[in-house]
Design a protein around this nucleic acid. Structure first.
Lengths: 187, 187
DNA sequence: TATTCATGAGACATATATGTCTCATTTGAG
DNA sequence: CTCAAATGAGACATATATGTCTCATGAATA
């Protein structure tokens, strides 16, 4: 009964990620062209630009949820779960980040889901603190902020061809936990 | 002989920073309104949108240069210089970052200056490595990436009212050097 | 084969941003 | 005070993006 071909809709969403993450001000015509689809077809699937943006945000959150869920399914501790999630998120980073600069949080569903995700991250960090995975005297909001920005840094490194995703994940986790200091503390 | 009032031009540049860092797609009319200036006046100072963007990029780089120069004037070591520069850049972070998503690097001057800045940061990091300030087995590009993203993280923390600029700078430097690990290594 | 349905191409109307221009008013320097 | 320069308001032309609509085509289905 689902008469709408999935391939078209998916091609548009994929093109949306690629186009907007490179150039946030790109036009819908650009997206349609990149998707190999007519402009009218894009509007058949997404009534407006805002609709497309919301769809991209939803898709990004679903992907994140799936990747993190799969990666942490059998993590023995919260700390280890955070390490595995970090590695899993790196390849998805660009699909997440550009949305932060879009007025997409006006959609109440999206806004709620974002807050939910941030609250879960904070809870996981608190749990990891209790395990001794993170220092208890460091504010959780800072740990969360660091966590997210090191993921973005790792993605950038990969994009620039300076490291593989696995190498970048190791660097990010090492930085997050032990820092990059040299000399005496070197180990 | 300088017949152009500084106040107008400066008001427009300031409004440009405020407006575009919040909403990169804002119109020049928005900027003019925020500057308390007519749209025509904006165009008298900046022929086109691209002109304004280039001016913002230049201004941002001058501010950065000045802040870093003043902060590191009498730093005893490269490592200490990087710590002081980090603290000095935090309040300017939003004025720098939004430009990364603008097609402003098409201007050859800007592109050259950006590369210059990145090269200098890399050189300073290498020098700090030689001092023992950073571990020698960590790739310099990763240290640079971490450095910049922790600055952005610190700025975010400050913007959210979770810390003062000085507190955020301490957190960022501690993270960069020693990490956030808890338990046994806690110190 | 006949039919249904998504599609592509493109016309069309509309909205918004951009850049130029004019003119009356204000401001500041001499 | 006087005059030149900067300004604000707004008209104007243009470009681009957006969203709707129509129609012919092609592919999949019944």
């Amino acid at each position: 009964m689902n008469m709408i071909k999935l391939t078209s809709r998916q091609a548009i969403i994929e093109a949306g990620f690629e186009t907007f993450s490179q150039r946030p001000g790109a036009s819908l015509a650009d997206v349609a062209a990149r998707a190999g689809v007519g402009r009218a077809t894009l509007h058949r699937h997404f009534r407006s630009r805002g609709d497309l943006m919301v769809a991209l945000a939803r898709e990004a959150m679903v992907e994140l949820e799936a990747a993190v869920g799969a990666a942490t399914a059998d993590a023995p501790t919260y700390t280890e779960g955070l390490r595995l999630a970090l590695a899993a998120i790196i390849p998805l980073a660009d699909r997440q980040w550009f949305l932060a600069h879009e007025p997409v949080e006006q959609d109440p569903d999206i806004a709620r889901a974002y807050q939910q995700d941030r609250a879960e991250l904070a809870a996981d960090i608190e749990a990891a603190k209790a395990e001794g995975g993170f220092a208890k005297d460091i504010p959780t909001p800072w740990i969360a902020e660091t966590y997210e920005n090191l993921i973005y840094a790792a993605w950038t490194l990969v994009r620039n061809g300076e490291a593989t995703s696995a190498q970048a994940a190791d660097l990010a986790w090492r930085t997050l936990t032990r820092g990059l200091e040299g000399g005496k503390i070197d180990r």
